[in-house]
Each structure stands twice: as C-alpha cells, then as structure tokens.
Design a protein around this nucleic acid. Structure first.
Lengths: 223, 223
DNA sequence: TCAGAGTTTGACCAATTGGTCAGAGACACG
DNA sequence: CGTGTCTCTGACCAATTGGTCAAACTCTGA
C-alpha cells in the first residue's frame, strides 16, 4: 500500500541515513538489500515504535525472509540503531544552517521553512523520531543531552543577541526553538489528525501551513 | 519509579476517564482494582503504544496477576479502549469552552492556557493520544472525523467571524487550532527532549512556556 | 454462621516473538 | 569450468505473548 509513492519520493530525495550508515555495502546485492531493509524498517518502526514492530513485519515489507534480514543485520536493535544513527544529524542540519550574519527574521523564517519541508518530504523519519522520544528516548537520550543541547544552546545565544540588538523582539530562545519544532513536526507526526480535521478534500496542508507559520513568526518576531 | 508523584497528582485531579467508563463498579474491590488497572495501563500504554505494551507489564504495574486483570477486563483491547473512550471528550473540553460572546484574543489565550495546563497535569493522557495518532489512529479515526472535526469546524467559523469583524487578525482558523494543539502538547509529548535541552536544572518549563505562548498568540492575533 | 457471590491464582495453551544453524543455491573470478 | 565466497532458506528453538479454566480463596449479608 502506498509503496509506489513512498518509493518515488524516496528516490527523489535521499536522506543521509541510507548512505552513511552501513559504511561498506560491498556488493551490489548487499547495497540493494540493506537499502530495502532500512526502507521497510523505516515504514514499520515509524508507525509502531521499536517495541511494537516485529522482524516479520519488516521482512515482509522488504520482501525478504526473516533469516535473510538477520544475514544483513545482527538484530532488530541493530536495524533500529542504524536508522536512528544518521537521523539526528540530518534533523539538525536546518538549525545548523541558521546564519549568524544573516537578517534575523529572515534566518528564522528560513529555518521554519526548511523544517516544514522536512516534515513534508520525510514524514516517516519525523515519526520515527517522535516515537523514540515518546517512549522516553532510551536510545538517543545521550545525543539529545549532548549534540542536540549544544547546538540549541549555541543558537539560543545567537537569538538572544539578536534580541539584545533590537533586531527581533525579546523571547525565550529555547522556547522559540521548541515552538518551531512542534509547529512544523506536527504536520508529519499528527498527519492523520490533520487530514481527519481538514476533511477528504484537503489537498496540500503544507502550502497553507507555510503561509500560516510565516505570518505567525513574522508577527511574533518583528520588533 | 515515580509512582508516588504519579499517584499524588492523580489523587489531586482526576480525569473523567476513570469515573465514567466502567459505569458500575459495584463493589469496593471492583472499584479499587479497575482503577488500579486503568492507572497502570495508562502508564504503560502511554509509553509504549498499544502494540508495544504487554499485559504482564500492566499487571505488574497494577500489582495484580495477569488472570486477575482479565477478570476485570475481557482483553488488552478492552483496557485500551476504556482508556481512550473518555479521553477525546476530556481533551476537547477546553475548546468547547471557547465562548463566542467573549473577547476574542482573551478567549483564545484562555484556550491556550487551559490546553497547556492539561499538558502539565495529564502528560500521560497526552502521550496516549499522541501514540494512538502516530500509529494511524486505528481506534479513534471515526471520532476524529466526526466529533473532533465537527467541533473544530464550528470553532473555526467563530474564529473566522472574529477575523471578519476585525477583532483579531485574519488567519487560517484550522491552522490556528493546529498550532495551539502542537505548541501545548509538545511539552507533554516531547517532555524528555524538552528536559534534555533545558538541562538538569530545568525547574518548571511550563511557567516559561506560558509566558512565551501568551506573547506569541497575543502578537499574532492582536490586529 | 454459612451459603452464595465475588475474587484470585497456578497451570496451561496456542500463537508469535527474536534469533540460530546447517546446508542449499547463486555468483564471481581465476 | 571449478572453487571459494556470498546469499538465501526451511527447520528449529526458547522465550514471550494474549488468553483460558478449574479450583481455591474471601467476603458479604441473611
């Protein structure tokens, strides 16, 4: 179900994840199968979370036998870990790209747009992340308290400076960043609810979402 | 772990859920045990989602034997369903309370505050809901497309009217509501991440969150 | 006090789970 | 062509899963 569109979208844009994690897929077959497994696992894990997903589900989605899965990955854990490994980095790239020398409001709006695009183009990755955090982030807590916190702290200083210089209004930088995360990821994570509320005909919530969010952050931040 | 505080908080405030669902807990024992089961199930389901949770986990958390669980509820499904049954209603109450005759900006801010309070006081309920939606809302899709959609549509008309009357700025009402949901629920659902970023000493993110959100929606909505 | 209802449990069950393993096929390459 | 490596699979395993059941225990009210 919906396999084709998933694959289409996937071939259009590919996240780091699949490239960098299994560093040396030597043979063509290995390349193809590890990819298929990670694709399938992303589908399954992002929907049911780690504990709610089964190897059989993943194997079936990848059109491989279960023992064959375990030929490429040593365990269920390993598949999940591989998926998660690159994700945080990719997820933070848009924030990293926030330019200290740019025009503050524009920089923040650009961040919002990039984050919203990610929700649109990689909803499964967003849900995988959401699931992991909902479940207490047992496998990425360290990264959250390290890599993530550091980057956020750094950018918070930048935002505070912009405030101090009077170029944007004074807001709590951490909560500003939280709000960007929640507002943009909502459209991926709560996709079902968004569509249920907007009704059948809801073509592209993302176009309207972008307009709304630009208004919101422009009015919030402009001094 | 954290059982005491959970229980304290629970005795302070009790959601509809536990009262209205099992309509006739005749004996004292029944009353006590169904309550313990639902409490435990809320803990477990909200963390692992339906599929990721086991009866053994719930039984252990409720300090009952597994067959004893199944003496009070016919199945795992039934426990989950009971939990979910009252939840949507409770969750929507704050939106229902939005008064058409009130002052627009104040009404919306009041909604934001009530919603944020719910995230603070009932984070497990919020996570239960989030888990269900992340997994495609198989058990509440109908309610989302019915009850939820209707209420949101109704309130959207109201918000549009306020806009037309020039009492608040013109925004897409549906997305305004989405933004309130995502911003407030974020503090419950992504609790772990919020605390990881704010660091150990993060006392009460909610106090600061309220200040931030009031600023945000005031600046967004005030014409 | 005692019978009947309400409550609890250990033993059990079939299905599913993550994972193993020996061997069979497929493939590359000299 | 043949051999060694890579790929794949059916059969299997122990543990866990949701759920059953008869028998035992406990509580209540007449």
């Amino acid at each position: 179900m919906a396999e084709k569109s998933e694959l289409d979208r996937h071939s259009r844009r590919t996240l780091k994840i699949n490239d960098m994690n299994h560093p040396k897929p030597r043979t063509r077959i290995q390349q193809k199968n590890t990819e298929a497994i990670l694709e399938a696992a992303l589908d399954v894990f992002s929907q049911y979370g780690f504990r709610g997903s089964t190897l059989d589900q993943i194997a079936q989605a990848a059109e491989l036998s279960k023992p064959n899965l375990l030929y490429y990955f040593p365990s269920k854990e390993a598949i999940h870990a591989t998926l998660l490994a690159g994700l945080l980095d990719t997820w933070l790239d848009p924030l990293r790209a926030m330019d200290p020398t740019g025009e503050p409001v524009e920089e923040i709006l650009a961040y919002v747009r990039r984050k919203l695009e990610m929700s649109r183009d990689f909803p499964r990755e967003s849900r995988l992340f959401a699931n992991e955090i909902l479940q207490g982030a047992p496998r990425i807590k360290d990264a959250l308290e390290g890599e993530l916190k550091n980057l956020v702290d750094e950018k918070s200083v930048l935002i505070a400076r912009w405030s101090a210089e009077g170029r944007i209004i004074t807001v709590n930088p951490h909560h500003l960043i939280f709000s960007i995360w929640s507002l943009t990821q909502h459209y991926a994570d709560f996709d079902v609810q968004v569509h249920a509320v907007l009704g059948e005909d809801s073509e592209a919530p993302f176009a309207e979402a972008e307009r709304y969010l630009v208004t919101l952050f422009t009015r919030l931040l402009t001094p």
